[in-house]
């Protein structure tokens, strides 16, 4: 089952990358499709074990939450860019950098990966490292709080609620 999903994803990726339609006659090029099938099959055989564990139940609800999450992420991304432009253009460079430690309550690997990538794309923060027991080290360009509780509330909590609904 898992391998079948991987096979379909690989074949769709091949299809979009190669786009096996002739631009003039609009015919399907069969040799490209057959090559794609072979490549997708080999990919499935080699990387079948690597795919991360995804929870089974409520997949539609999770997808809807993920679609809700995208505009939030995009908005914070845009804010981050404007923040960086402000700091770059300001003649005195108003930065106060430091590495702080925060605690997350998420537990699955994919949820923590998504959290780290979201933190890196949002204003003024960059994930540096994480420990086994759920602590993240975060480089903050403008440190507002150094203790774990307060920094966690400022940085992590705005994503945690929605990510828990998607991944756990």
């Amino acid at each position: 089952m898992r391998r079948l999903v991987l096979f379909i994803i690989a074949f769709i990726a091949w299809f979009l990358l190669v786009w096996p339609f002739d631009t003039l006659t609009n015919h399907l090029r069969w040799q490209s499709v057959i090559a794609g099938l072979v490549v997708a099959l080999l990919t499935t055989i080699i990387f079948g074990e690597v795919r991360p564990r995804v929870p089974r139940q409520g997949i539609i609800k999770r997808c809807l939450w993920a679609i809700c999450y995208l505009p939030v992420l995009f908005w914070y991304c845009l804010l981050a860019n404007l923040d960086v432009v402000y700091r770059v253009l300001h003649p005195e460079m108003p930065i106060k950098p430091g590495i702080v430690k925060v605690k997350t309550s998420l537990s699955t690997a994919s949820a923590i990966t998504a959290l780290c990538n979201s933190i890196t794309l949002t204003p003024g923060t960059l994930t540096v490292d994480l420990t086994e027991d759920g602590y993240l080290y975060i480089h903050w360009i403008n440190v507002r709080a150094t203790d774990i509780e307060k920094a966690s509330r400022i940085i992590v909590s705005r994503f945690e609620r929605i990510l828990r609904r998607i991944f756990e």
């Binding site: 991304c77 845009l78 960086v84 770059v88 460079m93 950098p97 590495i99 794309l121 923060t125 960059l126």
Partner: peptide
Amino acid sequence: GLVRFPDIYNRLQAATKCVTL
């Protein structure tokens, strides 16, 4: 930002965010 900021972590912040988006 990559040229102007003082240390590697700040540069990484500025460059990654702005250049990715």
